[in-house]
């Protein structure tokens, strides 16, 4: 029994070894086709990496709209606190953040170029403000809340911040669809590439296949090494794509940090998430195997 299992295992090991040798025996063509497939796969993988980062940096509540409420400039501290208490008690308000005018002034003074401008002004030009996260995010409910708050005394301006969030959400959805479509298309490209690569392998191995058949090889025995070859090609290409995305991530990290810093957003570019990486490599291995299987179906029919 153990002997039989060993023998079976050794057949698989041999097929795997054969596939590896086939890759190594022609290093330059192997490297070139691996590079071509890797770059192809790096496109959707890189897109997924960017999407993941945008989603993470934009934050989980990026799609939850916020309302900014600005008080009149002549509002005193006590009135502002009263308004804050009143807002807090509203059932339609889920979260409330008070932004005092002095704090806003300090933040802008810290910025280069703005400090001089502010120094010229006699008073603090910024009003007290509240950032409200509403309980409901339906457009009608939000607009009703905005209108109601706008009628309060000492309230200068109520601004709905949901528009940009909605646009971002729609954009991300588009991006996600784009990445999926690209992934499927380029996956098919990988199938096609393995298809032709395996065809060439079958052609160069024609004698060996013929002799093996005459010596009693089953179809499974003949197909096995080619299946391994296709899967291995896909696996290595997937890994190559992963490396490319990693390199791009590291190269972009500095510039992206600079850019997000300018917008006051905290967050660094991270490489492809672990589960996305596993999906990438698994998917490309599966596509390689599929390309090999299809190619064998077409090119390995027993001549009769």
């Amino acid at each position: 029994m153990i002997e039989a299992i060993n023998a079976r295992f050794s057949q698989h090991a041999k097929a795997m070894g054969w596939a590896l040798r086939r890759l190594v025996v022609a290093p330059l063509p192997t490297l070139l086709s691996l590079l071509a497939i890797s770059i192809t796969l790096a496109l959707p993988a890189g897109g997924q990496m960017l999407l993941g980062n945008v989603l993470r940096i934009a934050g989980n509540d990026s799609v939850t709209p916020q309302i900014s409420l600005f008080l009149a400039l002549d509002t005193d501290r006590r009135t502002a606190e009263l308004i804050g208490a009143r807002l807090k008690n509203l059932p339609s308000v889920r979260e409330l953040r008070y932004v005092p005018r002095s704090e806003t002034l300090k933040r802008f003074q810290a910025r280069e170029g703005l400090a001089e401008v502010l120094a010229v002004l006699p008073d603090n030009p910024f009003p007290d403000a509240f950032v409200i996260t509403p309980r409901e995010d339906g457009t009608a409910a939000l607009e009703q809340l905005r209108d109601e708050l706008g009628r309060w005394p000492k309230v200068e301006l109520v601004q709905l911040d949901s528009d940009w969030a909605r646009r971002l959400d729609a954009l991300l959805r588009l991006g996600r669809t784009g990445v999926s479509v690209l992934g499927v298309l380029l996956g098919l490209g990988l199938v096609a590439t393995t298809f032709t690569t395996i065809r060439l392998q079958v052609l160069t191995q024609r004698t060996e296949i013929e002799v093996s058949r005459l010596l009693g090889a089953t179809d499974a025995f003949i197909r096995r090494p080619f299946h391994y070859f296709g899967a291995l090609l896909g696996l290595l290409s997937g890994f190559g794509a992963w490396l490319i995305v990693l390199a791009v991530t590291l190269a972009l990290r500095g510039p992206v940090a600079e850019l997000t810093g300018l917008y006051g957003i905290a967050g660094t570019l991270r490489p492809l998430a672990v589960n996305d990486s596993l999906i990438l490599i698994g998917f490309s291995a599966a596509m390689g195997w599929l390309g090999a299987a299809l190619s064998l179906l077409r090119h390995l029919r027993e001549p009769s």
Binding site: E3, A7, R8, Q11, K14, S212, L215, G216, A217, F221
Partner: peptide, 11 residues
Amino acid sequence: LLPLSIAGFPP
């Protein structure tokens, strides 16, 4: 060795 590999003989 080929026929024995095909038949799955232990190495």
